[in-house]
């Protein structure tokens, strides 16, 4: 019975195994990025960037059809253009970075949907917006795993300046010039992971596997290492449980994964040991010292 519910779908169907492997890889790549986005108060930047990659992927689609590498390359280029463009406009005008990013991503989203609709059908559009995690093929899986591996390695390399730029940017500036480059590399990681997630979860939901586990982790761990561990665990669990929910109840799999992540978040807000609402509401005696 337990086997039937929790293991059998994966043992039986190859597309379920691929989907599981893909979401696990996404968990390892995207969740740590999400933790840093949250700690840098950039939670919504991920959302904006996810929309920004759409027109690039759409142009790739127009040129080469549903070709993985054309769409991934297009998405990467569009993401970098928007990240750099928004940064440049923020520096050279009085508009702040978040406002210029908002302008860019709205234009990108509209442009992307238009482009996809001109060339493709509504089914294509749905694939772009919500992905198709059950249709992951070998090259896609390799791309997602490659992105996750690369992003873990790069994250390890820029760990110190990244942490220090969050906690004490003035000190980092006084000892090293690594802060600026680390920030740019980090933005590149955000875009890369969104492009990876885009293949599985679509442009609208890719950011879900990045941010929801990250904010969930805040309720379970006090230090950053623990947070990243919790985020990865929660993202992987969401992938696994979401796929099962979608299999057993015949629901769309991408949204199911994100809904499970959302349920974990809601549960953590209530009962997470670090600042969960229930613990705050419980009357607790204060300590001696």
């Amino acid at each position: 019975m337990l086997f039937d519910t929790f293991i059998a779908p994966f043992a039986e169907f190859e597309f379920m195994r691929r989907a599981l492997a893909g979401t696990f890889a996404l968990a390892f790549g995207a969740a740590p990025i999400g933790v840093f986005l949250m700690l840098r108060r950039m939670s919504l930047i991920g959302d904006a960037m996810a929309h920004a990659i759409l027109p690039g992927a759409a142009v790739g689609f127009m040129i080469a059809g549903l070709s993985l590498f054309a769409m991934a390359a297009g998405g990467l280029i569009a993401g970098f253009v928007v990240a750099v463009g928004a940064g440049l406009i923020a520096r050279s005008t009085q508009i702040k970075e978040d406002a210029s990013l908002a302008a860019f991503f709205l234009i990108s989203l509209a442009l992307g949907v238009t482009l996809v609709s001109v060339k493709g059908t509504n089914v294509d559009l749905l694939h772009f917006l919500f992905g198709s995690v059950l249709a992951i093929d070998d090259p896609t899986l390799l791309l997602i795993v490659g992105i996750a591996s690369l992003s873990l390695i790069v994250l390890a390399l820029i760990w110190r300046p990244l942490v220090l730029e969050c906690v004490d940017p003035g000190f980092l500036r006084s000892v090293s010039r690594a802060g600026g480059p680390a920030h740019i590399v980090f933005l590149a990681l955000v875009v890369m992971n969104l492009v990876g997630g885009f293949q599985a979860l679509g442009t609208l939901l890719a950011v879900g596997i990045m941010m929801l586990p990250a904010v969930t982790a805040r309720f379970w761990a006090r230090d950053i290492t623990g947070m990243i561990g919790c985020a990865i665990g929660s993202a992987a669990a969401s992938g696994w449980a979401g796929l099962l929910v979608s299999y057993h109840f015949n629901l769309p799999s991408g949204p199911a994964i994100i809904l499970v992540a959302g349920a974990l978040y809601a549960m953590s807000v209530l009962c997470g040991p670090v600042g969960g609402l229930i613990w705050l509401a419980l009357p607790q005696k204060h300590l001696e010292a």
């Binding site: 942490v163 906690v167 004490d168 940017p169 003035g170 761990a221």
Partner: peptide, 12 residues
């Protein structure tokens, strides 16, 4: 610095 711009909510 006089006012270090330290994010005291950062988990470190």
């Amino acid at each position: 610095p006089q006012v270090a711009d330290i994010d005291r909510s950062f988990p470190i």
